[in-house]
Design a protein around this nucleic acid. Structure first.
Lengths: 226, 226
DNA sequence: TGATGTGAAGCGGTTCACAGCC
DNA sequence: GGCTGTGAACCGCTTCACATCA
């Protein structure tokens, strides 16, 4: 166990490990070694050990890790032991799709409110979730105990929405609008940008037109943008 | 100009630069220095210069970069000079939302076909795009000249879908299912995982309960998973 | 003078390799 | 013997600092 600050790359991988463990647990496995885990899920065993070692000594030398126990530890580390109330700003297609997406691994996330500026949408419900006027964000978020906001509005409006979210005192934001945003203080913004990903594929396709010599897979470390 | 292979982090940033330049161009600006670009969009000027220098000498010493010219170069480098036909596998909420999302920066991407395994969806249209049986992927993709596939199915099915896509000869895939996938040969898979992002926010919120001392922004380099 | 292009330094993350423990 | 936990080596990306050139 170390006191050092852990990198976000590391915590991202913890999410991946947790999913792998869930799968193993569902299959009835009891323990697993870092080497076996690495083999099964295309990871690196040294990295698994090092990632886990930041948070404690969870394994048994000569044996490996107890799957159930390690899962519990990871859920605790990641804070997945409570339910987070989420607000989505932007009740368009993307926002609605995310609102409907109940697939977040352990049901630790509940979409409690949607926000929009379109009068035609305000007051309606989308998948059972009420759509509020974005101007009432602060009060509604407070009442509904919102801790995480998702920005799903057009790029031009994203920064203004973030400013509003920060003013309401939220500290965690997921941005799916295709713009980098400027956060302040200790507010954490994660941006997931489909446009960059698609343009990256475009670069790949155009820069390397069908070259097939050499099948050495370029490495693409988990946790990094692939 | 170098012959070295460029990192994906670099090309991701080129997408960002291109968007910044588009904004400046729309405002009527003509030239810009790396320092000014960095200041306006919270980037690092040395990194901008280095990123660009991988691909040529686009600037003029003492002046900066011609915005229009540099935009053109970036579009060429990124392969954004043609239209890519995209197929989306999974006509559920997420797939439909992406199909409807015309916001991809320069309209270089056209969603030409949707695929699903649900007989109730097959044959219908979603936002004007026909939904095909996923079993016919190979033939339909060939006919429609598809070059990029987006996987928007539940996690359990994602690997099988990728296998089918690879068998059809596609080389570029965007995966929005919450599982890491194994690609083969020179097939490029980019995974965008909302679950990891949300769990990362959960970690942030739980690990650091409201600490407000010190407002030094932690750096979050563009291009990396934030 | 002013800004680019770039070698070199710096930094952080990954991988190696092995001591330590079951 | 087998596997964890970890210091050290390694590697790649970022940042600095400056020679170069308009």
């Amino acid at each position: 166990m170390k006191a050092e600050k852990v990198s976000e790359l590391t915590t991202n991988r913890l999410s991946v490990y947790l999913r792998c463990l869930n799968e193993l647990e569902a299959r009835g496995e009891k323990t697993i070694s870092s080497a076996a885990l690495a083999r099964k899920f295309h990871l690196n065993s040294a990295q698994i050990r090092k990632d886990l070692a930041y948070f404690g000594e969870f394994g048994t030398r000569g044996v490996g890790y107890c799957i159930e126990e390690l899962s519990d530890h990871l859920r605790k580390i990641l804070g997945l032991v409570k339910d987070y109330q989420i607000a989505i700003v932007g009740a368009g297609r993307i926002g609605s799709a995310i609102a409907d997406y109940y697939g977040f691994s352990q049901k630790n996330f509940t979409v409690a409110a949607l926000f929009d500026s379109d009068p035609k949408k305000i007051g309606k419900k989308v998948n059972g979730v009420p759509v509020h006027d974005v101007k009432s964000f602060s009060s509604v978020a407070k009442k509904a105990n919102i801790e995480i906001a998702i920005i799903a509005v057009p790029g031009e409006k994203a920064q203004r929405v973030l400013d509003r979210i920060m003013k309401a005192g939220l500290r965690a934001v997921l941005n799916v609008a295709p713009v980098p945003l400027k956060a302040e203080g200790d507010v954490k913004v994660k941006t997931v940008d489909l446009t960059i990903s698609l343009e990256s594929l475009s670069y790949f396709l155009s820069g390397d037109p069908g070259s097939n010599e050499g099948d050495v897979k370029p490495k693409s470390p988990i946790g990094r943008t692939q």
